[in-house]
Design a protein around this nucleic acid. Structure first.
Lengths: 93, 93
DNA sequence: AGGTCTCATCAACCTGTGCTGATATCAAGC
DNA sequence: GCTTGATATCAGCACAGGTTGATGAGACCT
């Protein structure tokens, strides 16, 4: 899941979608990317639950699912908390 | 930065380091990976500030830097918050 | 129905990067 | 000082996955 945010183009897509739902053509224009590429990444994001589809006539809108992002953030904070708790630990060789 | 956690091996390394500092040989053993590969990834993590070095004799220990993880988590929660605030927005075509 | 527009899917290509083997560097012990 | 063991660096390979072009499936309009 976090793996998807690694790609710079996908990261920009979720950044744009954080300000509201957009259709594919918006993303194509804003990102200056080819349409098949945008659709491809949107599919990946959708299958991972980062984004949800909203077909509107011949346009299809995509909307960010905040819960998925929150879940990822929680995993990171939990990791940080474990690291802080074990700050003094050092396994000997 | 989040980009680094995308690789499964690096993710496992961070997971292991969350339980306390480890030296390279520990990671090589636990991950069942070749030593140059582990050193390579540790370097990437270190240059991104995810991990810090602690040379101890001929061993070098690596320790997780929780603040870096927390910073990444905060960026994700901020993104989720923006998405929630703009839940009703939909730019027209 | 025909035409046009948006979007999705497919096949093929190509770049980035994870991985390996060989080698160098440094510390510890004899 | 020499050997041994741990770690870092380098060059090269291989493959995943990002990118592109062509094509197809629906939706809207006249």
């Amino acid at each position: 899941m976090i793996r998807l945010l690694a790609d710079p183009l996908r990261a920009r897509m979720v950044e744009l979608l954080a300000d509201g739902a957009l259709c594919t053509c918006h993303l194509v224009a804003e990102l200056d990317a080819k349409q098949p590429l945008v659709s491809h990444h949107l599919r990946a994001l959708r299958e991972a639950g980062v984004v949800e589809r909203e077909p509107h006539g011949r346009f299809t809108y995509y909307r960010l699912r905040p819960d998925t992002l929150t879940a990822a953030a929680d995993r990171l904070t939990a990791l940080a908390a474990r690291a802080r708790a074990n700050a003094g630990v050092r396994r000997e060789c």
